[in-house]
């Protein structure tokens, strides 16, 4: 019982700790950080936590570097192929793409989703076809 209690306390702390990201306010490769955020499909607003929590301790050019890195990442992320992959994998559509890249990503996403649906339909059709052929066989060979 005592052992179980310790486990419960530990699990609670670990659970809380999981939501609190340990952030640095300087000495960070901001461009790389921005890039990583973008290719993960996350919003540029992720940087808000640095701004809010670091305040004046945030490095002077951090935001510009972060946004520049983010811009590079988002250009790689917001492509037709990525959209297709997300659509095909039934992932949610990302809304992080900037205006000029959004259309391509969404076109890919729609087509990915459509392709998946077609494939599902086709598999379903094959299954139905198999059932139908079994019925025909039974009708032609009544025992």
């Amino acid at each position: 019982m005592r052992q179980l209690g310790i486990c419960i306390v530990f699990a609670t702390v670990a659970g809380c700790g999981g939501n609190v990201k340990n952030i640095q306010c300087s000495g960070v490769d901001w461009a790389a950080e921005g890039y990583k955020t973008a290719v993960a499909g996350e919003s540029v607003r992720e940087f808000d936590q640095y701004r809010n929590r670091c305040g004046d301790r945030l490095e002077a050019d951090a935001m510009n570097a972060y946004v520049a890195g983010y811009g590079k990442g988002v250009a790689e992320f917001c492509t037709y192929d990525q959209g297709y992959a997300h659509g095909y994998a039934r992932q949610s559509r990302r809304d992080t793409c900037p205006a000029e890249l959004r259309a391509e990503y969404e076109r890919g996403y729609k087509f990915g989703k459509f392709s998946l649906e077609r494939r599902i339909e086709s598999v379903k059709g094959m299954e139905e076809g198999h059932e139908m052929s079994e019925n025909v066989e039974q009708m032609s060979n009544p025992q």
């Binding site: 540029v44 607003r45 940087f47 983010y70 988002v74 900037p98 205006a99």
Partner: peptide, 9 residues
């Protein structure tokens, strides 16, 4: 807004 959030226009 962050610049990336704004359209080029």
């Amino acid at each position: 807004f962050y610049s990336i959030e704004l359209s080029p226009a």
